[in-house]
């Protein structure tokens, strides 16, 4: 799992997605091919907005997992660090641990979201 995690570090540690210079679409997670423009598309990595709105959420295994629409319209699924979530709640990115590979393996860091007070 180490190389698989390492390959995506740039896109997990910050909300870096793809922007198509041809059609102006934002994609998260990063794509290799623009679904609209296909081979004519020109995708580049772009840092996405830090803030967004909760479209929906669930609480599973004691964690809030939410579908978040970022301010540029792209969507990301992420954990929300809060006691409670609500549809429409405004949130901002936060750097957190998502897990670890046992006691001896690597730590999986990534982007979560916290309510904007």
């Amino acid at each position: 799992m180490v190389p698989r995690f390492w390959r995506k570090i740039k896109y997990r540690y910050d909300v870096v997605g793809s922007y198509c210079e041809k059609c102006g679409s934002y994609y998260y997670p990063k794509r290799e091919l623009c679904p609209r423009c296909r081979r004519k598309g020109r995708l580049r990595d772009e840092k996405f907005p830090d803030e967004g709105t909760i479209l929906s959420y669930t609480v599973v295994n004691g964690r809030i997992i939410a579908m978040i629409e970022l301010n540029n319209g792209a969507r990301t699924l992420a954990e929300v660090c809060a006691e409670k979530a609500e549809i429409g709640m405004r949130v901002r990115k936060a750097f957190r641990r998502y897990g670890e590979d046992g006691d001896a393996g690597i730590i999986y860091y990534g982007t979560k979201f916290v309510p904007i007070c």
Binding site: F95, R96, R97, I107, Y109, K112
Partner: peptide, 11 residues
């Protein structure tokens, strides 16, 4: 928080 550590706070 349970998912915070020295690295997350440093970031």
């Amino acid at each position: 928080d349970i998912d915070e550590d020295t690295a997350t706070m440093a970031v």
